[in-house]
């Protein structure tokens, strides 16, 4: 009885009452959609700070051990890194098109674009695996099989580079620690993303996101683009900016 003392509010959105997607505690679908998108953005906010700690560490150590970071980054392949950047940008484009297809309610187009995104994500992870294997063979994995021997004498690919002093050569471990921590965390996000994409494709084939309820696809798109942005920064930091020093 007490709750009726407060002025009552006529249900304005009665027509939405029976939408199968509307959960009971929202007034209407629009509120539900905005709420979940805002929630997704807040989640991405936590992701910014999650990677933020790593970027902060990278900045500090690069200033401390500049020669070691330069020498370390010369061991990465720009060609593979650039290819991966292009692959990831393509996958962001296909994901954006998937969201558009969902908005347009084109079921087959949606499935197609999502599949393309999965393939591109897989290609990225494949290239990353090739790079990791190369690091393993060169004995550049800190803690597991690291050897600084390669950095104490002249690298034939970089004739201008002077060999590092033994103590600075040891510091390349910090570079590779951060390399593996950053790209590893990024790859983990990609693996999670591809796994979710597989579920999305199966459900999209059944027509789940092409009947007016597309929030899931849209929010997943935000996640995928965020992972892309992380790579957009990792690529120059790890591969490019030390080319000439």
């Amino acid at each position: 009885m007490d709750s009726q003392v407060i002025a009552t509010h006529p249900e304005e959105h009665a027509e939405h009452e029976h939408s199968p997607y509307l959960r009971h505690h929202f007034a209407n679908l629009e509120q539900q959609r905005e709420t979940s998108t805002f929630g997704m953005w807040l989640f991405l906010l936590t992701e910014i700070m999650f990677f933020g700690g790593l970027f902060c560490a990278y900045l500090i150590y690069r200033n401390w051990y500049y020669p070691a970071f330069v020498a370390g980054s010369h061991q990465l392949s720009i060609a593979l890194g650039a290819t991966n950047t292009a692959v990831l940008i393509c996958s962001s484009f296909t994901m954006a098109m998937a969201v558009y297809s969902s908005e347009m309610r084109w079921r087959k187009a949606l499935v197609g674009w999502l599949l393309a995104t999965i393939v591109l994500g897989g290609v990225f992870l494949g290239i990353k695996a090739v790079e990791y294997r190369e690091k393993w063979e060169k004995r550049h994995v800190p803690g597991l099989n690291f050897s600084a021997a390669g950095f104490t004498h002249q690298d034939p690919n970089y004739p201008e580079d002077k060999p590092l002093a033994p103590d600075m050569a040891e510091k390349t471990q910090v570079y590779f620690s951060l390399y593996f921590a950053m790209t590893g965390m990024h790859a983990l996000h990609m693996i999670i993303g591809v796994s979710i994409l597989i579920i999305l494709v199966i459900r999209a084939w059944g027509g789940a996101y092409t009947q007016g309820h597309m929030t899931t696809v849209e929010n997943f798109g935000l996640y995928w683009h965020f992972v892309d942005i992380v790579w957009i920064f990792l690529f120059p930091l790890l591969y490019l900016i030390s080319r000439h020093q």
Binding site: A57, Y61, W64, Y65, A68, P142, G143, L144, E170, K171, Q173, V174, S177, L178, F180, A181
Partner: peptide
């Protein structure tokens, strides 16, 4: 696995 971000022995 012994990565070296905080380990002073490895430069962390």
């Amino acid at each position: 696995i012994g990565i070296g971000v905080f380990d002073p022995a490895k430069g962390g």
